[in-house]
Amino acid sequence: MSQILNERSFNSRPTPAANDTAVAPVPVMRPRLPAAEEIFPYLSEIDANHWYSNFGPLACRFEDRLSAHFTDDTGCVAAVSNGTVGLILALKALAPLPGDLCMLPAFTFTASASAVLAAGLVPWFVDVDPLTWALEPGRAKDYLKSAPGRVAAIMPVSVFGRPVAVSAWDELSLETSIPVVIDGAASFDGAEVGQAPVILSLHGTKVFGVGEGGAVLSTNKALISEVHSLSNFGFPMSLERKAAGRSALLPGINGKFSEYSAAVGLAGLDSWSATRQRFLEVRDAYLDALADLPALQPQPGGCEDWVSATINFSIRRARATSLIFELDQRGIQARRWWGDGCHAAPAFSSYPQSDLPVTEGLVDSVIGLPFYVGMTRDEILRVRAALAECLE
């Protein structure tokens, strides 16, 4: 078993005594944002500035630091009120053709399709690659040949945080003239930045969170400016356009990023390196502990050099729904994070969809296990013991 399981830095707690009658359940997630003392200096700046929203100094600094984190350039980030709003604004900026289709994978969270509808487009659900669980450019190109209508946009999705190869999607977009908007909600760690916007969720449950927030990443600075404007009721943001006065040039919404969210985000960036390392340590210890259970396989790319706030496995010889029930009886929480697939939700089941054999296999064979910073050696071993018992 990994050395990390024996180190004090892993937050080990003693195993409960044999006569303990109650052992707390192992939660599927235990979110953790920066501590109050880490955020306080930034809150003091807000008090001094009397500036609380509307592209304040902390929000602008947060965007600059995110740009530096992901690129060697500036101006490549638009912070917004949440990830779903980021998807809506990017779609509105790139695909303003109401009623046309947006291709997206059925194996995704419901926010993807909600954003498509809110942007005035119609979700068209397609299947994913069995080797990556994701919609890949080659498969998307093939689907375009049999599209049930005009396709205004394509929305690939990061699968549980695995980074998306933006360069390949940029090539497809250039070839087809169809905009690509990438739902990279959980892919903060390792996100690639290109022309196609990648939208990150900064929700408190993500590997890097601010409570509620999102970010649009793109080297297309005109797009970033457009997203800023759309998030501010459509008011112009560039100096040239501001000269026209306070008049909405676009049909925007209020999707701005507050100074308080920026305070949490800046504190999170200060400690990101250490936070990331702790996630990696727990993940590697987890994978080591479960390595001798052949019925469990990490998600594609799950052993690569990126980390998310969840850990997901495919299972053999068992249904995910049944295994989740059996684990719950043993005090272990688990989830099918994307349920029966986005296409199966009552809100979206009437929209066009391709044949979905891969998705239908994944929704009942993929399980999210407990995973969080501070997870102890005993908790990991409890999960392993319960899995071994259930899978027998």
Rank of each mutant, 00 (worst) to 15 (best):
L323A: 09
S225G: 05
A320W: 07
T359L: 04
C303R: 15
L391C: 09
R150C: 06
A140W: 03
I4D: 05
S9R: 04
S271P: 01
V85P: 03
V363C: 09
D64N: 06
M375E: 12
V207F: 01
V181F: 02
L290Y: 06
A267S: 00
L293H: 09
G120A: 15
G99K: 07
M237Y: 14
P31Q: 05
L66P: 02
R319F: 10
A165C: 03
N19H: 06
L327R: 02
E136K: 08
A222K: 11
R30M: 14
D170Y: 05
S229E: 11
E326G: 01
D20V: 12
A24M: 14
G339W: 13
A347I: 13
D127H: 05
M103C: 12
M155Q: 07
R30V: 13
V366N: 15
D142Q: 11
P137I: 03
F125E: 10
D142R: 10
I380G: 14
P25A: 08
R32N: 14
A243R: 15
I154E: 06
A95E: 10
S167W: 00
R30N: 04
P236F: 08
A291C: 10
I39A: 04
F233I: 10
F208R: 01
F257G: 03
T132W: 13
L239H: 15
N254L: 14
V227F: 12
S112R: 10
S314A: 08
G184W: 00
V180W: 07
E392C: 07
